[in-house]
Design a binder for these strands. Structure first.
Length: 151
DNA sequence: GCCAACGTTGGC
DNA sequence: GCCAACGTTGGC
C-alpha cells in the first residue's frame, strides 16, 4: 500500500468542504507527473491533504483512496476552465481517483513543523522548488507525520 | 505582492 | 528538436 500527499488551496477546495462532501473526485490536475501519480493510486492508499497558500500552510488531514483513477470529466467540459481541446473520450489525458474523507487533524501540521523534523528532510514536499501537487510519501515519512498528531 | 523555480508552448 | 517566451505555483 502506498502513501501520497495532495495539495489544494483552501479557498478553492478546503478540508472543511471535503469533510462535508465525504468523498470527492480529485480532479482538475493538469500536470503530467502529478497525473501519473494520480493514476498510480490504489484503493485503500492513504493520502495526506495539504493546504497551500493558507495560514498556516500545512497538512490538514487524511483521506483514503476509495476508487482508482477514471478520466477526469472536467477535461471534456467545453465551457469549463479545465477543458482540454487535445483530450477526447477515446483518448483522455487527465485522470482523477476518488478520495474518501478520513479525518481532519485537530490542528494543521504546519510547514514549519514539518521542516523541523529531521526524518522528513528528504520529503518531496520540502525539496527546494518542488511545486508538484501530487506526490508520493515514503512510508517512514508517512508514519513520522502521523506521529505528530497521534492522540 | 514579489519573484524563483520550473513546466508548457510554439516558432523556427 | 531547440529554446525563448510565457504562464503558473507557492513560499516568503
Amino acid at each position: 500500500m502506498a502513501n501520497w500527499l495532495v495539495k489544494t488551496e483552501a479557498d478553492v477546495y478546503s478540508i472543511e468542504q471535503f469533510r462535508r462532501d465525504g468523498r470527492t473526485r480529485w480532479d482538475c490536475v493538469r500536470n503530467y507527473q502529478a497525473r501519473n501519480y494520480l493514476k498510480a493510486m490504489d484503493k485503500g492508499d492513504a493520502v495526506l491533504i495539504y493546504h497551500s497558500n493558507s495560514d498556516p500552510r500545512g497538512i490538514v488531514g487524511l483521506a483514503i483512496v476509495s476508487a482508482p483513477a477514471a478520466p477526469d470529466e472536467t477535461q471534456f467540459d467545453k465551457a469549463g476552465e479545465y477543458y482540454d481541446p487535445k483530450a477526447s473520450r477515446d483518448a483522455p489525458r487527465w485522470f482523477s481517483p476518488e478520495l474518501k474523507f478520513d479525518r481532519e487533524f485537530s490542528t494543521p501540521i504546519a510547514l514549519e513543523e514539518l521542516k523541523a523534523q529531521p526524518e522528513l528532510k528528504k520529503m518531496v514536499l520540502l525539496q527546494r522548488g518542488s511545486r508538484l501537487s501530487v506526490q508520493p510519501v515514503d512510508s517512514k515519512e508517512f508514519k513520522a507525520i502521523l506521529q505528530l498528531r497521534r492522540a
